[in-house]
Computed example of a mutant assay.
Amino acid sequence: MRAIVIEHRSDVAVLQLCGELDADTAARLYTALADLLERPVPRIVVDLTALKFCDSVGLSAFITSKQVIAARGGWLSFAGADPFLAQLLETVGLGRYFAIFPEVEDAIAAAQL
């Protein structure tokens, strides 16, 4: 899995994930988020458009990251999940825990409200 910050504004960062997020690659997600978590109030949109697979370890990484971000007054949202991943997030109940948007632009626009 690759994790790239593709947009880094003063108010919102977009983290694009590409490939497979699993036990072998979850550490890369934590590393990518580490710099973003240093912001005074981290606001992060995770672009899932190019994420092809996510297992329970990957989901756990998202939950742990959200807890740290929320403790700092920020937020973490998802955008661009394919139908399988969107259904997975809903099935495991994360649709109530995370804001999930169809497109990155939608997530950024919601941040501006």
Rank of each mutant, 00 (worst) to 15 (best):
Phe53His: 00
Glu20Tyr: 00
Leu36Tyr: 12
Ala70Phe: 08
Val68Trp: 12
Leu15Val: 06
Thr49Phe: 04
Cys54Leu: 03
Ile4His: 06
Asp55Arg: 10
Gly80His: 00
Ala13Leu: 07
Ile6Ala: 09
Ala13His: 02
Leu89Ile: 12
Ala107Tyr: 06
Ala86Ser: 13
Trp75Gln: 12
Phe62Lys: 11
Phe62Val: 02
Arg2Gln: 14
Pro83Cys: 00
Tyr30Asn: 12
Lys52Asp: 15
Ser77Cys: 15
Thr91Arg: 10
Arg96Lys: 14
Ser65Asn: 05
Val14Tyr: 05
Val5Gln: 07
Asp24Thr: 12
Gly58His: 01
Thr49Val: 11
Asp55Gln: 05
Glu103Trp: 06
Val41Lys: 03
Pro40Ile: 01
Leu37Ser: 05
Arg39Ala: 11
Met1Val: 09
Asp47Asn: 09
Arg39His: 08
Ala34Arg: 15
Ile108Arg: 02
Ser10Val: 10
Phe98Trp: 09
Leu85Ala: 06
Cys18Asn: 13
Val41Ser: 00
Arg39Pro: 03
Leu94Asn: 08
Ala107Val: 03
Val12Thr: 02
Phe84Ile: 13
Val104Thr: 04
Phe98Tyr: 08
Gly73Thr: 06
Arg72Asp: 09
Asp55Thr: 03
Ile44Leu: 05
Ile108Leu: 10
Leu76Asp: 14
Pro83Leu: 00
Ser56Asn: 06
Ala81Glu: 00
Leu51Tyr: 03
Phe101Ala: 07
Val92Lys: 08
Pro40Tyr: 04
Leu88Pro: 01
Asp47Leu: 01
Arg28Asn: 14
Val57Leu: 10
Phe84Gln: 12
Glu20Met: 05
Thr31Asp: 15
Ile100Lys: 04
